[in-house]
């Protein structure tokens, strides 16, 4: 009887261990999944805006881009986009243009900001710069749950335009600046040194 009970216990332990192993394997993929933001929570913005840009490049599409593909940036610099794309799992852009100032506000950003307060996300830079004579406020966040960069989020707030960019995968700021103008990512001037006011960001949100 006792031997039979021991066998049952061993079997149960084995089952629990196997389930736990499966769950751990699933969690190993989570940081990059967590780096993917739900940008469509702000669907009301699409209705209110007079202009809209919505780009969705998932991993399957990014894999099609050749490993070496040289493009030229606005400054004439040659960049191997293929090399950067190799580390990416997704590029998502939402840009909303409005006819008048004040047509969007912080209340429209609660969904995104809530996601950016979740573990792993940290604000990296907070930039205020002039674009076409108007103030542009750019916030760059990074997901670094695994000790490396698993994703980037950018919030670019202008009086009549709001742009949200979410890049999932391994990328650094220099590569990010090289991606500007590609994949529907607008020219935000990140890392080009012409910012009027770079404010140091707090370590953690």
């Amino acid at each position: 009887m006792r031997t039979k009970l021991n066998s049952w216990t061993k079997l149960l332990c084995l089952a629990v261990a196997l389930v736990a192993a499966g769950a751990t394997a699933g969690r190993a993929q989570q940081p990059q999944a967590a780096a993917r933001l739900q940008l469509d929570n702000e669907a009301s913005l699409a209705q209110k805006s007079s202009e809209l840009i919505d780009v969705n490049l998932d991993e399957n599409l990014l894999r099609i881009i050749p490993k070496k593909i040289i493009t030229t940036t606005d400054t004439g610099e040659k960049v191997d986009i293929g090399k950067i794309v190799g580390g990416l799992r997704g590029v998502y852009v939402r840009s909303y243009g409005f006819t008048n100032e004040g047509e969007y506000g912080e209340s429209n950003l609660t969904g995104v900001r809530a996601q950016l307060r979740s573990p792993g996300w940290a604000r990296l830079v907070n930039i205020i710069k002039k674009k076409a004579g108007e103030n542009m406020h750019v916030e760059v966040y990074m997901m670094t749950a695994t000790g490396r960069i698993d994703g980037i989020a950018i919030l670019a707030l202008e009086p009549k335009r709001l742009t949200l960019v979410n890049i999932v995968g391994t990328i650094d700021l220099e590569q990010l600046s090289q991606l500007e103008g590609q994949f529907g990512i607008p020219e935000l001037g990140i890392g080009n040194g012409d910012n009027k006011d770079n404010k140091p960001a707090p370590k953690k949100q």
Binding site: S50, E51, L52, I53, D54, N56, L61
Partner: peptide
């Protein structure tokens, strides 16, 4: 079908 891009400009 995968929605690659949607753009609405004035």
């Amino acid at each position: 079908w995968h929605p690659l891009v949607a753009v609405r400009l004035e």
